[in-house]
Amino acid sequence: MNQPQRPINLHVNYHAHVYFDQTTVEFAAKLCEKAGDLFNLKIGRVHQKLVGPHPCWSCQILFASNDFEQLIPWLEESRQGLSIFVHPLTGNDLDDHTKYACWLGDECQLKVDMFRRKAL
Rank of each mutant, 00 (worst) to 15 (best):
C102D: 14
P53Y: 07
A16K: 07
P73Y: 12
L50K: 04
K30R: 08
C108S: 11
E76M: 09
S58C: 13
G52H: 02
E26W: 02
A28T: 01
N13P: 00
C56A: 04
S58R: 07
D21K: 00
C108F: 03
N40T: 12
C108A: 14
G52I: 02
I8M: 14
W103Y: 12
N2T: 08
V12E: 15
D93S: 11
F85E: 15
H15E: 01
F27W: 10
H47V: 00
V25L: 10
A119Q: 06
G36E: 05
T90Q: 02
I72E: 11
L82Y: 02
P53T: 05
T90M: 03
H47P: 01
C32Y: 06
N40D: 14
V18L: 12
V12A: 14
V86N: 07
D21T: 03
L94H: 00
T24N: 01
N2Q: 13
S58E: 15
L62V: 06
K42P: 04
K34F: 04
E77A: 13
K99S: 06
Y14C: 04
W103M: 14
L31K: 04
C32F: 02
S78H: 10
L50H: 04
T90C: 01
M114R: 03
H15D: 08
L71C: 08
R45S: 08
L10N: 12
D67R: 00
D67L: 08
D37P: 01
G44P: 06
Q3I: 11
D93L: 15
Q80D: 04
L10I: 08
I43G: 09
W57M: 14
Q22W: 04
A35S: 10
E77D: 15
I43Q: 13
E77K: 07
